[in-house]
Every structure is written in C-alpha cells, then in structure tokens.
Write a protein that binds this DNA or RNA. Structure first.
Lengths: 343, 343
DNA sequence: CTGTTAGCGCTTTCAC
DNA sequence: GTGAAAGCGCTAACAG
C-alpha cells in the first residue's frame, strides 16, 4: 500500500521516461523558461508529489554553492525578546524564500564562533547576529571575507558592519525622565553587561537625563555585571540593603527586572510603595505583574524585519553602507510601578 | 596581513604537498586508524586552523548521506515553554555531536509538513516534533519510511511513534484538587485546542478530580478553543460576565492564563478576591504576578533530554518500542491565587 | 521542447 | 604511511 519511495531525481526521471534535466527544470520552476509542455510539467509534479520526492539539498547546495538560507545567532532563545525577533526574521525570510537556521550562543563568544563556522560550512547566504561579549573581531573577519552580515541588538565602537538596534539611548532617557518627573532624585540604574553597547547607550541616556535635571553625579548609582535574573537580583539586594537606598530603580532589561522583583519580594518591600521601578523591554506579562510595570518597549518585529531587508540586500549584491546604523524607536508604557514623590 | 583563505580540501592539500586523502583522514580524526605520522597530522591541523578551513558540509553530506544533525519542530518558539525545551534539546544534542535545526510551525499543519520536507531534504538524522493540529498521518508516514522520530508535548490516540509528554492528567488532577480543597465547587476549566491530546488529558484529570469530590457534572464548565492569550481572554470574559460565574478558574496553559489575567483586569476584578486561578505551566514571572499564581510546572529540561536520548537511540539503530510513551512528572507551585472558600 | 554529461567537494576503496 | 580516483545527486552548459 505504501508507495515505493524514490531515492533521487534519476529514479524519478527513469520511472517517467523523461530526462533528469526536464525533471530538474520543472521542479525548479523553470518549465516556462524552457518551454516545457504543460502536460510534461503536470506529469512531473504529480509524480514528485505521489512519491514524496524532494531534492537532496546537499547535492543542490554543492552544485549551486549556496543554500537559500540565512543563519541567525542569538544569545538566548528562551528570552522572549530574542525569540520574538527570531520569529520576525523567520516571517520576513520566508517571504523572500530563505530558510532560517537558528543558533544559540549562550552568551559565549567561543560558541558564537563555532556557530559561524557551522553556518559557513553549511553555506548560508548571510548571517544575522545578536552578538555577545565585547569583541567583534571574529565577526569583522567573516564579514570582510565576503559573508553578508547584519548585527542586531548590540554593536561595537567603530564597527563596520550594518547594524540594527533599538534607540537605546532615547529609550533610557525617556525611562529616566519618567522617574525624574515623579520627583525621584536617588535613582539606581541597574546595568547588564557593562562593556556591551546597548548597556553603554542606556547608561548614557540615564546619565544625560539625570544631568538635564541637575542631579549631581554623586547621586547616580550605577552597578551590575550581566543581563540576567541573578545579576539583577544580587545588585538589587545590595542596593536596597545599603545605607541610603535609592527610591527608584531603572532595570536595563527584562531579566534584570525579574531579578529586581525577586529581591524586592524577598525583602518584603513593595513596588511602588517602598521603591519605584521602570524597566527596559516590554513583555506580555508586564501589565499583570504585582505592580504592573512601566517599561520601555523595543520594536522586536521591526528589528527583525529591517535586519532581513538589509541582509537580503547584501546577498543580492547591492551596494551597502558598511557603517550603516539603524535606530529603531522605542515606546514607553506607563503603568503603576512608579510612585509620585513629594517635591 | 589577512591570510589568504582556502576554498577546499584540494587547495589545502596541494598547499601542503599532501594528498587530499590524508588531509581528509586527519580532519576526520582517523589519523590513528590509518597510522598517519604525528608530524603530518600536526601540519594538517595547524594549516586548517591557520587558513580557517572548514569542510563543505554539502559535499560531506552528499557523500555520507547523513548530516549529524537533528530537526526540531515547535509550534511557537516565542512561547518560553517551547524555547526552554529547545534549549534543553540543543544542550543534549551537542553532547552527542548533533547539530540542531529549529523550525517554527506556527501551529499550522501545512507548515509542519513543509518543515519535515525541509528536514528530509537536508538529511537530518532524526526529528523531534511538538506536533500541532489534530492529525498525525503525515508524521507516521515519515516515521514508517524510516526517519527516526520522537513526539513531544502532544500525542495522538493510537500513535505508534515514541512520545515524551508531561503527566498532563496527573498535573491537572493535582491542580483541580488544589481548588477543591479550598472548597471551590463552581470551577471552570479553560481549554486550549479542544482536540489536542494534552488538552484532553488535562480535561480528563480535571473531570476525574471533580468527580472524586462528587461535584455533579453539570457544574463542570468547560470551554475554549486554542492555546493562546486571545482565546483565554475571550473565554474568561464570557465566563465572568455570565449569569453565575465560577469562583475559580483552571487555565490549561501559560498563554491562556495570561488571557485570564487580561480579562480579569479589564473587568476590574481581583485574584483571588473575586475569582481564584491556577494554571498549567510555570514561568519565570509566575511568582511575581499580581497575585502570585499557583501553577503546575512541566519539566522542560527533562522532556528535552529524554527526547534526545530516545531519538539518538533510534538513529543508532537500536530496537525501540514504537508505542513507547514516557510521562514526565509535573510539580505543583502553591502561591496566592487561590482563595479559601467557606465550606 | 528535450536530453547528455561535466563537475561541485568530499570520503573511501583499492592500490602501493 | 600515503595517494589516485570513483561516485554521492544535482544543475546547467551545450547539443540537438
């Protein structure tokens, strides 16, 4: 009852008494171009479907030296921020006929290099990478060697690879302003990975906003070491158990914010009663937290979409501005995690 | 300054005045086996590293007719539940030397079929699939044709493919019991995809728990149509605006629970003051919600790990029990979303 | 409109 | 210890 399955194009062709060339042409949508008869075309298509034949991508890739696929590297696919960017990339890529290979670097530069090697040997047509760590030499080498590439989320000083990031500076500026207009003066900005560019930009936005209100630098508490729940947790504990704790916290991403919540809950404090909070990264649950959290949302869909556009432009061989830097706007969600302080 | 890069094994071999055979053998760790001299081996390895050579996986795959990779299909990678399973699968696979290809089916059987085709033509050595929809014929065909396969999360009646799922029945039973021991009698179980197996199992657990307390069937409110925030939201609105609303809700997954929160908040009701809630699926934020939510946690790490074990066993050609069904235990998190009712 | 065939880069058999 | 060469399945140049 089970249809005898077909190994390769040769078997399929001989079964139909047609040459492999014709079969190949039909299956590659070139029937028109080679003026293959409708009848032959139909026979081939039906047979391919009937026998469940799909071309060996290894042979195809070997011959064509391309794969019609792009590689995506993210530090942590279980962070919905990255997962949603990946979804957007997939959606856009599919429209353009590219398959997507996803790699998880686990915030490890070594693993990132391994993945790029992997992608190279699998002949991806281009790579989108949310870079980890603080060095980009390995990326530039690959890019300079001709691999189309787009960097998202993080960039590096002087990097000459097209980059799409959120407006980290602007988002942080607005977030801090939210705290300032509620008369907070003692504000802690809880960093993620110190040396990373989004972190630096967000800190810059924070500092500039503080200075715009003439808050002396001494009051600016800045600390942290990683974009993780643990880091946010430990830094917050340290801050709130300290001598003169801040009245407001600015968490530089969603995981740090969860760490803040963990620490605040452990200390039996309340938000915003005891301490106010605003966080970078909107999440589905942000509105339903105890207390609903004010956040700065990054436009994940747009970041994904633009990165695919810029990448496929490179793949198509178009002239590009290597130093291109696209800033995607952020959006403030005002909720109830910020207390209005007395002047 | 930039090292001239090497295209293929032939170039590398000729540069070293060594045959491609020897290079291939060294790079595949067969130096020992063919008694290649340490010196030659070192020369080859160093050169490969220096020139950044990595073998063309298409040629390799074409020759070997395998890819040392496995494909994973999930309905929605942006759902942390699946993302975490994928992470676990990646971790396990890496240990065993398999690369992982990830596909997102978007809860669409057509897309699932396309992805499987994709994987087949990319010669993955096996497939792990969190199946969508309510039919499994396409999966069985591929499995019967010899493709190693493991089903996770969902299964289908009478399916003869090894399956790893959470103990959906047991988890639901415990969840419902939590509501019952707090004297709730009018409980709504908000379903996801009606026909899907985890849904069915969870409903079964719910009903059995209800009956164990002699709650008449008439009181069992069951509704819903999809595992999504929207579905949870609409069903909850309908329930709570109805004539005699339930005093407690059992959300059959994390997305539905978020929908419940959305509806409850929109109706200006409180949890657990106005309505109690327990949900399948523990999430990082569950403890920090307004009100901290009681949940049934699925062991995502274990599901991923076992699925890779069962898949690699198949790939290695070991005898397997096709009807194998592994049930991974769940874990109750008691928090404050359930109100103690008067007897 | 259709077919023959070289060759993509690799592994491995067979030969020395 | 090492190498020459066949052949994996496909596409496209060339040939009708």
């Amino acid at each position: 009852m089970d249809q005898q399955s077909i190994k390769n194009i040769k078997e399929l062709a001989s079964k139909l008494n047609i040459s492999v060339t014709t079969v190949s042409r039909v299956l590659n949508g070139k029937a028109r171009q080679y003026r293959i008869s409708k009848k032959t075309e139909k026979i081939v298509r039906d047979a391919a479907h009937l026998y469940g034949y799909s071309p060996n991508q290894f042979a195809r890739g070997l011959k064509l030296d391309k794969s019609e696929s792009i590689g995506v590297i993210v530090p942590d696919i279980s962070n919905p921020f990255f997962a949603e960017i990946v979804m957007s990339i997939e959606k856009e890529s599919k429209k353009k006929g590219f398959a997507v290979l996803i790699g998880n670097s686990g915030d490890d530069t070594e693993q990132e290099i391994t993945l790029i090697d992997h992608f190279k040997s699998r002949k991806v047509d281009g790579i989108i990478v949310a870079a980890v760590g603080i060095t980009s030499k390995h990326l530039e080498e690959v890019f300079e060697a001709g691999m189309p590439m787009v960097i998202i989320d993080r960039t590096f000083p002087g990097l000459k690879i097209p980059t799409i990031t959120s407006d980290n500076y602007g988002g942080a500026y607005i977030a801090t302003k939210q705290l300032l207009i509620n008369n907070h003066k003692k504000i802690a900005c809880i960093q993620g990975l110190n040396e990373s560019q989004p972190n630096t930009e967000r800190v810059k936005g924070f500092i500039d906003a503080m200075q715009s209100c003439n808050i002396p630098d001494k009051n600016v508490i800045v600390t942290g070491d990683q974009f993780s729940i643990e880091s946010g947790y430990h830094q917050t504990l340290k801050l709130l158990k300290g001598d003169s704790p801040p009245t407001a916290l600015f968490a530089l991403n969603n995981l740090i914010a969860l760490g803040v919540l963990q620490a605040v809950s452990e200390l039996s404090l309340s938000i915003p009663g005891d301490v106010s909070l605003i966080s970078f990264d909107e999440q589905t649950y942000s509105a339903f937290l105890n207390t609903p959290m004010s956040t700065i949302e990054q436009n994940k869909e747009k970041i994904g979409k633009i990165s695919v556009e810029k990448l496929t432009a490179q793949i198509a061989g178009m002239e590009i501005d290597k130093g291109m830097f696209v800033n995607v706007e952020t959006k403030l969600h005002e909720r109830q995690s910020i207390k209005k302080m007395k002047k």
